[in-house]
Write a protein that binds this DNA or RNA. Structure first.
Lengths: 210, 210, 210, 210
DNA sequence: CATGAATGAGCTTTCATTCAT
DNA sequence: CATGAATGAAAGCTCATTCAT
């Protein structure tokens, strides 16, 4: 099963050429977004940048936002990999592992800072797309596992709430940190984040929380 | 201090008629945004809805986003009032006061949920506007005062970091909560938020933190 | 009350300039239709021919077909005038008057033969538009009056049917005659038409019918 | 004589498979026309509906209108059959036979009303196609025979004119009747038509004319 | 101040058609 | 024969903005 692209892609590429085309268009989309911003990223511009006809663009993508979603998805895949690189989710309960994971997520964000800025600031309705929700979901599962391993006393709705909060934290704070560049060291922020999550898990928390 | 309109308004309204015009246009802008979304909110449409000519609209606002910023600003004023209603910032150190304040902020967000959604999701580059930054700044000052009153051991950069984090929390989490409507009670979220801030202030946190 | 254009016109021209614009665009529309046919009559082409911006065209007409309808309407007005030029409808019962009227309608059709061909053959969904139906209606009223004057024995549904048939005849046959140019003299066709109508009115028919 | 396809078909189907392909495409064309109208009937859509590649479509048909002409032709064949079902053309002079024939033509039109509407209203330049002219020609021959049998006194140009008129009547009126659904019974219209034709043949007409 | 006609660049999208495989 | 990816010209239409009145 080929990597299934989220909605917006018309053909699941059946041939190598097709996959290459999709790749070229997404590449071009990235470049055009970076250069001209979301509003300036016209389909003709993207097609031209990809060295492809407008018709071809529409052969592979349902519409303009389909392409942008393609760009976003590829970016989210990188983020997802940063999540997966630590051996297994259970190890999240270990503060060091959490810090390392969060740090590599920050790396990904930082490396794509300008793109992130454009996607978040100029095309945010897309940022809520399926892939993004999938990552959020995955992150929440990590959280739940970690919380339980940490021996959290929370249960049921309270545990849900804590996981939801922790997930929002882990998604919002790093993005905001990268985008607004406050005069604070990344280390400090990450430690604060770990503390926060520990606190959410319950005072007795060791591991991430302490 | 006269109601200072933020960037986007061409003249400070010196005459009643002007103020009335600005008000009508912003009203119309709100309605059009709610009805047609950001993309569908053309200046012509807004002008028509306001019963005003496009030319007049451009007399009072520098450009389309000027109007949208006007709508946003008026909304932020409401939020700011929710912040101010508790007598003084120092009282924030009191958990009950914090909860009450945060609750009334949530009320404001909830009452304008659809508008919030449109502004955040479809016109986000504006959300970084001056007024938004002003609120963020104000919130951070509240935080610093509260932290000190709570006897936080943090100082200097560490204090800055904690305040920044806490501010991001207080801004992101409620908005996300209102917009994504997770199956969690508002009370639980607010309590979690208070706990978080307490944790940020330092282990010994009492007041908000407990 | 200004000449109310049928659906498709956006503004009932309130100023002389506006009326002039509408006229220029319809003129240009006619010319472009004649030159390029319906399919080739792009809005940009029409606007350019009118020496006007595309935006202006859309300021006065709701869409492309609005312009074509404008062209059609102006043509139908000519046809309608041919109908009205005979003093009054009652005189239709006189065969000579009928022949003269039908002849002048044929003149109008012949003078605009190419335009007629394009409208009928390439944009017929428009030809069914309101103005066309209005003419049909008017023609049917003429018919009814003439039939009664001719002392037709028909009544009720039968009279309706005869009028409908006669109207279809008077509309289809001349148009078909002009467009397909059969090797038959116009006089012969008109006489046949008159005979037909006489026959429809009933055997006893004098006047138009004999 | 093999079923001769009119212009639009590239090869006369020599093999079953070819004939099947042509049939499938025309079927699909009908369905797509009915569903999306002429403007919405793109070749890609028709090919997809037929389960065939666009390339194949162009192998069997010269262009888009070739397919539509195919649809039209198949429809005209049905009409032609309605004409032929009465044993021989000479019998047309018999009013009952004429009425029966016209009635079955009306049936065919009614059964395909929506398709007729689309073909006549949206793709009319095609209605002048060869097959249509062929039917018209055939009908005129029927008329001439019938007129002579009816003992018409007309000769030469006058006879031609009467036949032409009668043919236009028989083609326009039923189509208009079906499409505009006037509140008149079909029987009344058919009788009127027969009367008309009788009148055209000359007062002495018996048979159809009485 | 207020108007509203006029602009025109530029956008997204379609679709008949072709041709290498 | 059949495919389907690729094309690219062009179409209809919008809309922020201006300026003569």
């Amino acid at each position: 099963m080929p990597t299934s692209k989220s909605a917006g892609t018309r053909k699941s590429p059946q041939q190598d050429r097709s996959e290459a085309m999709v790749g070229r268009i997404i590449d071009a989309g990235s470049r055009v977004l970076l250069t001209y911003g979301y509003a300036g990223a016209s389909t003709n511009r993207i097609a031209a940048e990809a060295g492809v006809s407008p018709g071809s663009l529409y052969y592979y993508f349902s519409d303009k936002d389909g392409v942008v979603r393609g760009v976003l998805d590829r970016f989210l895949v990188l983020l997802g990999q940063a999540l997966s690189n630590t051996t297994a989710r259970l190890e999240w309960a270990d503060r060091a592992v959490f810090l390392e994971t969060a740090d590599s997520m920050m790396d990904v964000l930082e490396e794509n800072r300008r793109l992130l800025e454009i996607l978040v600031d100029e095309a945010p309705q897309l940022v809520r797309s399926g892939s993004r929700l999938a990552i959020e979901e995955r992150l929440r599962e990590h959280m739940r596992t970690a919380f339980l391993l940490l021996g959290t006393p929370l249960r049921g709705a309270e545990l849900d709430a804590a996981c939801w909060l922790a997930t929002q934290l882990c998604l919002s704070v790093p993005v905001r940190y990268i985008l607004s560049r406050p005069p604070i060291s990344r280390e400090t922020v990450l430690n604060g984040l770990a503390d926060q999550i520990g606190a959410l898990a319950g005072h007795g928390g060791q591991g991430t929380g302490r």
